[in-house]
């Protein structure tokens, strides 16, 4: 039995009472598990990540973190451009890491040639990679990533998610990732949480069904993903896309692993 590292119970959040961003979100993530959060823009994904990391406080509900070793790679980096900090100096802020460790972390994200570059001169995507290298150095038990594959081609996305999986395995960490690439998220995550402000399937205590995802995404988008997962291309008849509930799973316990799609793939 793996150790639980994050547990959220009935989390709700709003900036203004009339505009709910999250409502009664509950989930738990154990070590060596990756929770993928998917959903349309404005669905509350980034807000939830900020609550998980402690940058925001939920207006209702409770979040328990069973480890303080946490790293966060935000969607848009808010690194200060005034300070002339080099990549190497930035990595050393996270702890007492020697030159070899810092270079190693940069190699991990294919950024070794930027060791002495100023962080402010890097692109947004490069900054995000540097932050991932920092997270790798910090050896977090909880790694939170907000759209880390932005701006990468499909190969790059695949590589990055493999790196994240390596961090997860190497440090026995929980990874919580928000990504717009549903296909990749479904493939690499162990658990999936679909968010659409007030509508998120895990709260309904029902088994996972295709219509729950349909209610989160537009049908066309969901259709495409399932076809991609089946590996059969867009011409596959729609009836073959039926999602079966996971045998153990209730939505409330978030046991809905992506196996249900993988099983479909085998059937096909």
């Amino acid at each position: 039995m793996t150790t639980k590292l994050i547990e959220a119970t009935n989390i709700s959040f709003h900036y203004h009472p009339d505009e709910t961003i999250l409502k009664n979100v509950s989930f738990s993530v154990h070590e060596k598990e990756m929770l993928g959060i998917i959903g349309p823009n404005g669905g509350g994904k980034s807000t939830l990540l900020k609550i998980i990391t402690g940058l925001l406080t939920p207006t209702e509900g409770e979040i328990k973190r069973y480890s303080t070793k946490m790293s966060y790679v935000p969607q848009t980096t808010k690194l200060n451009n005034t300070l002339p900090l080099t990549v190497s100096e930035y990595l050393s802020l996270a702890g007492d890491f020697d030159d070899r460790q810092r270079r190693g972390a940069l190699e991990f994200v294919s950024m070794e040639k930027y060791y002495n570059s100023l962080v402010r001169e890097l692109s947004g995507g490069q900054k995000q990679r540097i932050q991932l290298a920092k997270a790798h150095l910090e050896r977090p038990k909880i790694l939170v990533l907000d759209e880390p594959t932005n701006g990468l081609d499909s190969n790059g996305q695949d590589q990055l998610l493999k790196l994240i999986t390596e961090i997860k395995e190497e440090h026995s960490a929980s990874v919580i990732i928000v990504d717009h690439n549903i296909n990749q998220t479904l493939r690499f995550s162990d658990k999936i949480l679909c968010l659409n402000r007030t509508g998120h399937w895990h709260n309904k205590k029902e088994l996972v069904r295709k219509e729950h995802i349909e209610s989160i995404y537009h049908c066309e988008m969901e259709h495409l993903i399932i076809h991609e997962q089946l590996g059969a291309g867009p011409q596959t008849p729609h009836h073959q896309c039926t999602i079966h509930p996971h045998e153990e799973g209730t939505i409330g316990e978030l046991n809905c692993k992506v196996d249900f799609i993988k099983k479909e793939k085998k059937d096909v």
Binding site: M70, S71, N80
Partner: peptide, 18 residues
């Protein structure tokens, strides 16, 4: 000094890191 720089340069990252 390093903590002040971390706080100034990457406030969110610093906070999440503890």
């Amino acid at each position: 000094f390093k903590k002040w720089i971390y706080f100034t340069f990457d406030s969110e990252g610093a906070k999440v890191s503890g």
